[in-house]
């Protein structure tokens, strides 16, 4: 994202700290903990190194905040996960209008059986369906977030586009 000042620092044993200098000139600190919880901090104006007010979020609360703000965080998390496991990758697949799966269920794609990929979320506008069930119905405009091997993801891409 151009012109945005988002700094990422590894916190060994804890998680990752993000520091965002907003255009309004304020600094927002976010610590995403390994266990899924998060802390959102506002820095002391006199001592900019010190978190003056800290919101502590449980994993559920952090997910709720993330859902409010959009689905980008979710994809990011799976991208992080795939970086830790060699050979595993994450990808997003939009369901185009006219796709053979528009209006059919997730189970109909047989993604796992045929390509070995797991669909870990469906992004629908500003909503996210995490861990979708096989019975969940897909529609044009949905974005599937899937993890799997590089070949598996290519197969899934072709399959969703109706090419195989």
């Amino acid at each position: 994202m151009p012109g945005m000042d988002l700094e990422e620092t590894l916190l060994p044993g804890v998680g990752v700290r993000y520091e965002l200098r907003t255009r309004a000139g304020e600094i927002l600190g976010i610590v995403v903990q390994r266990e899924g919880g998060a802390e959102i901090a506002v820095y002391d104006r006199r001592d900019p190194d010190r978190a003056r007010d800290v919101f502590r979020l449980t994993p559920e609360e952090a997910d709720a905040v993330a859902e409010v703000l959009g689905a980008t965080r979710l994809t990011q998390r799976f991208a992080d996960l795939s970086r830790e496991v060699p050979g595993l990758q994450a990808a997003r697949f939009p369901i185009a209008p006219g796709s053979p799966f528009d209006g059919r269920t997730l189970g109909d794609t047989r993604a796992r059986t045929l390509t070995g990929c797991s669909v870990v979320a469906i992004v629908r506008g500003s909503d996210v369906v995490p861990s979708p069930a096989p019975g969940d119905r897909l529609q044009a405009g949905d974005v599937l977030v899937a993890i799997g091997s590089a070949t598996g993801l290519e197969q899934l891409d072709r399959r969703l586009a109706g090419q195989s």
Binding site: L11, P48, D49, R50, A51, V54
Partner: peptide, 28 residues
């Protein structure tokens, strides 16, 4: 003591502080 220090930083709400990455890295 990485056990005592890590717990202390969490309890005192210092995880987001700018000096914390340096402290945790020394423990590592």
């Amino acid at each position: 003591s990485s056990g005592i220090v890590a717990r202390l930083l969490g309890d005192l709400g210092r995880l987001a502080n700018r000096e914390t990455p340096a402290v945790l890295s020394i423990l590592v």
